[in-house]
Amino acid sequence: MVTTTSPIKAESRDLNFYYSNGHKALKGITMPLYEKRITALIGPSGCGKSTFLRCFNRMHDLYPGNSYEGQIVMHPDNTNILDNGVDPIEVRMRISMVFQKPNPFPKSIYENVAYGLRVRGERNKRAVDDKVEEALKGAALWDEVKNRLHDLAFNLSGGQQQRLCIARALATDPEIMLFDEPTSALDPIATANIEELMSELRNKLTILVVTHNMQQAARVSDYTAYMYLGELIEYDDTDRIFTNPSRKETEDYITGKFG
């Protein structure tokens, strides 16, 4: 079991998820996320790790026919974010997400970062300016873009675009940040930058990251969960998962015998 002194920030309780075609992609996942810690999800393609991640901000609601069973409870307020009475937009206001491929909007660098504030109705220019600067500094991008904040975001390199997306997600002070294979489209240097950034962000918020790259999970995360065919096989301290896993399946995957 995970050894931690950190309180639980959110936990899924017996979570099942069905896609619109009836496929049961998650089978009874019960798993806590600890506050201000990085939790990594690993497992072979199709194991449900991205599906699980996307339950946390109700991304599946965008496509008709998907359904959840069970709970994801956020602390300290004990809200079940999968409850029908909970507005998915409220959930996304608290839990932000960084995607696999950088997906900046067709707007300036400034407006990309300000987007979350704008959709929340923030009109005070001074407040937006300050938040944009803070978020860009938080995403280690400020020095590179401070002189061209009004350039189109597409003119940035791939790694810069991904940091811009992190800044965008940071600007609204989320409690949890979801990373869905954030470096799989990036070169090794940009990847190292993002990983370093994630370690820094750990002081501010709770992070859940899906990765295909086991070294990445070992490098950045505090806890690691191994999933296979929609089930949570093992969840433990990252050190233990990679050195002394208790389940045979995990060991086979870690050592490359399978997957």
Binding site: N57, M59, L62, I89, E90, R92, M93, S96, M97, F99, K101, N103, P104, F105, P106, K107, Y115, G116, R118, V119, R120, C165, R168, A169, T172
Partner: peptide, 27 residues
């Protein structure tokens, strides 16, 4: 317009209308 761009907007807490007007239309 790729779905990933819409998802990016929804993930920021935007409504359908905000996504349509502020992201999809400019794109």
């Amino acid at each position: 317009v790729p779905m990933s761009m819409r998802e990016g907007s929804y993930a920021m807490g935007a409504t359908r209308f905000q996504t349509a007007v502020r992201v999809v239309t400019p794109a």
